[in-house]
Design a protein around this nucleic acid. Structure first.
Lengths: 199, 199
DNA sequence: TAAATAATTTAACAGCGTTAAGCAAAAGTA
DNA sequence: TACTTTTGCTTAACGCTGTTAAATTATTTA
């Protein structure tokens, strides 16, 4: 009876191997050249086997997206927990976001890229709301005792995200400027928004 | 001898037809489903013919990118010429940028998407510097009589671009919030940067 | 009219995602 | 032990992709 468990565990392993292989290939050759056959090669099976673990290629990308949001959420949480003042927390959280985007460039790309998985991500993947929820909490704290409307909170988060995501996008598609320039732009932008929120 | 000209003109026509067809297909079905055979169908030829006008599919995208930058540059110029004060000009220019991104969504995507044409765009396509040059000029005017260093100017342009590009990206990949929210975020962001520059 | 050149198409290659059929080994049953 | 069923996996195939070479048709030149 224990053999069932062992087999189940092996299956879980192959599933993880598929995801690992996909990400590894993306890191080495880019998402564009990721193919089911390459994944199969990497895990030493033939391509059809993958379809016993994932419905299709998109499902693999979605799972990696999920993984990405899980890691990002975790790191934003950690950043927050290392500060007490909301303003400091917010700054640290966005810097964590920034760091994640480059430390896990491929994950970030599959999370926010022009890929298939765009449209209704929050609907099919509730985890994708994690970072937003965390940051909105701190924005509320920063504004206390004023309580923002849902609309207002959304706009503020949105402004933050646009700035940081814009900077990241530009840095990923182009070869970014020097790190110093980036850090400065980031600090100016974040500081400006924080001040405009706190005011 | 005039027949040579006529043939050349016809050839120029088919070239334009290829570009038009490619953009039309992208508008109707998205870049992802654009194929050489579909283009060929649209211009009522077979696929290999396209290769007498363009080296490959990427060359077609590059040509459309070029076209996009040409239009964008033109519209930014127009926006500038309708105002006198640098601050007003700058605002109008970024709003023109914004409008272009949505009026010509597909062109904007191929210009700044995660596509192949990313890395050294300015090197292979000098036109892509047009908008930046125009806007930098106005930034300099805004700062007068202070003369910014190249680095400083670059950082300021870069900050602008990040904010606007971020907002646009988010609006294109996700279904954007209401127009009012967007306009407000945009106005706040642009206004904030302009003030921080002018100060 | 015959030869040369140009324009266009058909056929093919290698690769893609995906599915169906086939096979071989293991497990269950008598 | 012998037979059947199930499982795991592969091979083969379909229709699609970008791209190239060969074959074919049409046009121009001699």
């Amino acid at each position: 009876m224990g053999s069932k468990d062992r087999i189940l565990r092996l299956k879980e392993d192959t599933r993880a191997n598929i995801l690992d292989a996909a990400l590894k290939i993306a890191k080495q050759e880019g998402w564009q050249s990721l193919s089911m056959r390459k994944i199969a090669d990497a895990i030493e099976y033939t391509a059809p086997i993958i379809y016993e673990y994932f419905a299709n290629k998109e499902a693999i990308l979605l799972e990696l997206t999920k993984k990405g949001f899980s890691i990002l959420t975790c790191q934003i949480q950690n950043a927050r927990d290392q500060h007490l003042l909301p303003a400091r927390q917010l700054e640290a959280m966005w810097f964590a976001y920034w760091d994640f985007a480059f430390a896990e460039k491929e994950l970030y790309q599959v999370m926010f890229g022009i890929e298939v998985n765009c449209c209704e991500l929050a609907r099919i993947l509730p985890e994708s709301e994690g970072p937003a929820d965390l940051i909105c909490d701190v924005i509320v704290a920063l504004m206390a005792p004023t309580v923002p409307t849902e609309e207002d909170l959304c706009t503020k988060y949105y402004t933050f995200w646009s700035v940081i995501h814009g900077l990241i996008s530009i840095n990923i598609v182009r070869r970014g400027r020097s790190d110093e320039v980036n850090q400065e732009v980031l600090k100016i932008a974040i500081g400006g928004i924080i001040r405009s929120i706190a005011a």
